[in-house]
Amino acid sequence: MPLALATPALAQDPHAGHQMPAPPAQTPRTAVQADPHAGHQPPAAPAAAAPKPPADPHAAHQTPASPKAAGATADPHAGHQMPATPSTIPSTDPHAGHQMPAAPAAAGVDPHAGHAMPGAAAGGMTAAQQPVGNAPAPSVIRDNAADRVFAVRDMERARSILAKEHGASRISKVMANFLEWQDRAGGGGYRWDVEGWTGGDLNRFVVKTEGEGSRSEGTELAEVQALYSRAVARYTDVQVGIRHDLEPGPSRTHATVGFESMFPYWFEVEGAAFLSNKGELRARIEGSYDFRLTQRWILQPQAELGFSAEDIPEIEIGSGVTHVELGLRLRYEIRREFAPYVGISFERSLGRTADFVRRDGDRVENTTLVIGLRTWF
């Protein structure tokens, strides 16, 4: 009988039953590729020669517990060691690479404080976030597009005209408020009140003159004022200058401080104080209003009050309220700058002034019909 030789048992192939792909014949391997199934516990080799279906490659993987939420699917690759993210994939974190500060202890602290954000202005705010009241003044435009097409000299001339027409222009006006004849006793009388000025919106040189007289006695009152006028509010000008009285004599020269203003609802008011070269202080205030009955018919009431700080007997002026004047005139504007009118005027001397008027034999009170012209150019 032949002797049987003892053959050592062969070790089991850990990849028995796996269909392993053949390595590429022409591609040199620079490094040993890790077996993605290393450490798997494969099933035992079949005892029979009959072929068996291949074992599950993910058998015995340690998978996480199924999520509690209904409908969630477990990750079939849980537990795999995934390769590192390729460096060519761009980072989606907008703060990648920033040196981030430590987490703030108090709520509400901006974790990005100190970062230089794009478009930020002074104080950490963009220009759109700046308060309107604190916004910086816009820079002067130096690069005008029109200069690329037209001559610079022509454009400079056009810009200077534009500046003048929007506040830098100098204009003039002459306004005759009263040019009238009065039906007085003794042959009637006349009166004028004219103002002219030249300048701009803020600064003006003003000349005023007013007075009255009669056919029998000639000019009884006459004055001229030369004033510097400065706009101090939207509808108010302050005026300073001198006033010279031509009649009655002896003539006087006064330092003058006054104002002209448009009150709410279009009441026109003006007033002035006068200090004469003899130390006499006087003042007056007057106002008027235009009731527009139609586009051309205007009814204008007018009032004036005079004041004096002391008696001035030689010109029939007493201390206190010196006189009051009330008028009502109806004008028809043939054109805005040419309007004839008719009306009535009432004047009365008051207080100590009335005493001086009686002493000289003049009338204390006068009511007259007037016909006149209001015009300007």
Rank of each mutant, 00 (worst) to 15 (best):
A55K: 11
I285E: 12
K173F: 01
A106H: 11
G108Y: 11
Y265T: 00
L3P: 03
H115R: 03
A151P: 05
G320I: 13
R348L: 00
Q300K: 01
A38M: 04
R358K: 14
F150C: 04
T27S: 01
H244D: 01
R352D: 14
S261T: 15
E247V: 06
R157P: 01
R292P: 03
D147G: 08
F307S: 10
V140N: 06
L350T: 07
A102T: 02
P264S: 09
P136Q: 05
G279H: 07
H58Q: 15
L246Q: 06
A283F: 12
H80W: 10
G306Y: 05
P101A: 08
P51Q: 14
G39W: 01
D245W: 04
Y332N: 02
D35A: 13
A69D: 07
G200Y: 06
G218I: 07
D237K: 08
A96N: 08
G167W: 09
P101M: 01
A222N: 14
A127N: 14
F356P: 07
Y190P: 05
H115A: 00
L202D: 05
Q129R: 12
G196D: 02
R252W: 07
R191V: 08
T253M: 13
M175W: 12
V206S: 03
I315L: 07
S349K: 10
P131S: 04
Q62Y: 07
V240C: 02
H95G: 01
L326Q: 02
D56V: 15
D56W: 14
T367E: 10
A84D: 09
V364M: 06
L246G: 12
E223F: 00
N177R: 12
L281Q: 08
P24A: 04
L162R: 10
A168R: 11
Q81D: 11
A107I: 14
D237C: 07
D35W: 05
G189L: 04
V149A: 02
A116R: 15
P104N: 04
G79F: 01
N177S: 08
E347N: 14
E280P: 01
P54D: 13
E310N: 04
M82D: 03
H323S: 10
P8K: 12
F307D: 12
A272N: 10
A84N: 09
A339C: 04
Q239P: 03
A49I: 09
P28K: 02
A116S: 15
S288K: 12
A103T: 00
P28L: 01
P301G: 04
S308P: 03
V109Y: 06
Y228G: 14
H112P: 01
P51K: 14
Y341E: 00
G320C: 10
T219C: 10
V206E: 02
V132M: 15
R335G: 02
T368M: 09
G123M: 08
I285W: 07
W297V: 09
R153Q: 09
D290I: 00
G119C: 05
I285S: 09
